[in-house]
């Protein structure tokens, strides 16, 4: 796999030098110098999670358009609240960005009374991808269809591993239970990876997560249903039906979009920097290399969903309304 031993050695040195330069703290005063140093990205979930994967996939291509490097910080605490609060404390200078997952995070902000107002304090400026929530089981599960799972959940309480309670996937399962008379016991494992592990090893009956998660697990996961009008990636998600089609329910579509968030103060203070950010983000999304990178990370390109600030903010508002609607189901003691 290695073509020539000298290559990595040289790269080692150049990358080390790059890191050294990156640490330089000279500050540029002029907008045309932007970006004059590394852009710092806050991820409000853990390393190795879906957000990490998607942020890295994006920045891999974005680096060519932005002409800068990116640094990542992960704050997975309290369902993302920690990450949001720390992001808000950072300097609003357009060098600090938040890579957000609108669905779960807006629900968290709504339910946990964090005091961060989307629109007034923080703005989502570009939507990069959207994926629906999915319910799936491990390869050795006895449930082969959503109907079978729901039937069982009418007889006994079926356990569902979820990332956390304030999450569109959790809303989906609770709403499904409400609509069909089935009982689902949501067990928050605190992240996509541990939730998936619990379903695969049979600790719980099924798992509800964004669709990218079971897709990236290949034949370790069998998708039973998708909380959307249709399955956007039938080939990758073993042709699973839409939940509403399979069960005759009328649940709202439960999706989540990745989006870049930034301080409102930075938008007001550095409009020209925000323009550069938006333009280069759009160039990245239009770049065929980005679709390639998404495919390489194991995800269907159908998830790429370009949206401008208005679209991203509209989704945030819709999610907020959804969270208020299902508030009682998610915060019960």
């Amino acid at each position: 796999m290695l073509s020539h031993p000298r290559l990595p050695r040289r790269r080692f040195l150049s990358a080390a030098a790059g890191t050294a330069l990156a640490a330089g703290v000279g500050r540029a005063a002029f907008a045309q110098d932007y970006p004059s140093r590394n852009v710092h990205i806050t991820v409000p979930t853990g390393e190795g999670g879906g957000a990490d994967r998607d942020a890295r996939t994006f920045t891999k291509v974005w680096a060519d358009h932005m002409k800068t490097n990116f640094e990542f910080d992960y704050y997975p605490g309290a369902a993302g609240q920690v990450g949001y609060e720390f992001y808000m404390q950072q300097e609003p200078n357009a060098y600090n960005l938040l890579f957000s997952n609108i669905g779960p995070e807006v629900i968290m902000l709504t339910l946990q009374n964090v005091g961060i107002d989307i629109g007034k304090d923080l703005v989502y400026i570009k939507k990069t991808s959207t994926e629906p929530m999915a319910v799936w089981v491990g390869p050795s599960s006895p449930f082969k269809s959503l109907e079978a799972l729901v039937d069982e959940a009418k007889k006994r309480t079926v356990t569902v591993s979820v990332s956390r309670l304030p999450h569109p996937a959790s809303i989906g399962m609770l709403a499904l239970g409400e609509a069909t008379g089935a009982t689902f016991n949501l067990v928050p494992f605190g992240g996509g990876n541990p939730s998936a592990m619990a379903a695969i090893t049979g600790e719980v009956d099924c798992c509800a997560l964004p669709l990218a998660n079971p897709i990236s697990l290949g034949d370790q996961a069998i998708v039973l249903g998708v909380f959307a009008d249709r399955n956007p990636a039938p080939d990758e998600a073993n042709g699973a039906p839409a939940v509403n089609d399979a069960m005759g329910t009328k649940l709202p579509p439960l999706t989540s979009s990745r989006a870049w968030g930034i301080h409102k103060a930075a938008i007001d203070k550095y409009p020209e920097r925000i323009e550069i950010l938006k333009t280069t983000m759009q160039e990245t999304l239009d770049d065929p290399a980005y679709a390639e990178a998404v495919k390489a990370s194991g995800l269907p390109t159908a998830f790429i969903d370009v949206g401008n600030q208005e679209a991203a903010m509209a989704e945030a508002e819709a999610t907020r309304e959804l969270a208020i609607r299902y508030k009682d189901l998610l915060t019960g003691g």
């Binding site: 080390a16 890191t19 050294a20 990156a22 330089g24 703290v25 000279g26 640094e71």
Partner: peptide, 22 residues
């Protein structure tokens, strides 16, 4: 810690000076 590993330790006069020089 700072040059080699890029630890984001708070920058002071010395770090700024070095950043400006190199």
């Amino acid at each position: 810690f700072i040059v080699l590993l890029g630890t984001r330790f708070p920058a002071g006069p010395f770090e700024r000076l070095m950043g400006a020089l190199f």
